[in-house]
């Protein structure tokens, strides 16, 4: 019976102590409740600077790498052009040499084909 009695007394509706609502509100007012999503979009100034620096570094790396790649490609192309020009010069010399050889052999051929002089 005591237990039943105690439970009834515990669950009996009682009016809140006077001033409770005021005290609760007073403790809540100074706090600014910031939604979680808003907090992630507005980092601290230090973190923002770090991110900008990171982005700038990435852009610099890409720019320097691109410039070096372009220069390397240009060097390779220039070397190929020089090599091709040298090859063309040698080909010209080979043709000239063969032409001279051919002309001289033609002289021999002509002389050999002439009737006895």
């Amino acid at each position: 019976m005591n237990l039943d009695h105690d439970l009834r007394r515990a669950f009996t509706r009682k009016p809140a102590p006077p001033g409770l609502a005021g005290r609760v509100l007073a403790r809540l007012e100074p706090r600014v409740i910031v939604p979680a999503a808003t907090a992630s979009l507005s980092p601290s100034p230090d973190r923002r600077a770090v991110r900008w620096l990171g982005a700038a570094a990435a852009i610099a790396v890409v720019a320097i790498g691109g410039e070096r790649y372009y220069r390397q490609q240009e060097t390779v192309a220039e070397a190929a052009r020089v090599q091709q020009a040298a090859a063309a010069r040698v080909q010209h010399d080979v043709r000239l040499a063969l032409q001279i050889a051919g002309e001289k052999l033609a002289v021999v051929q002509r002389r050999l084909q002439e009737p006895n002089r």
Partner: peptide, 26 residues
């Protein structure tokens, strides 16, 4: 003076006849 070093004889030179000003060769 023309000096060609390598296995090039008149027969092979004749294969180039008509090109590079080389006439038909003996």
């Amino acid at each position: 003076v023309v000096n060609i070093v390598g296995p090039l004889d008149l027969t092979k030179l004749a294969l180039l006849q008509g090109n590079f000003g080389i006439p038909r060769l003996p």
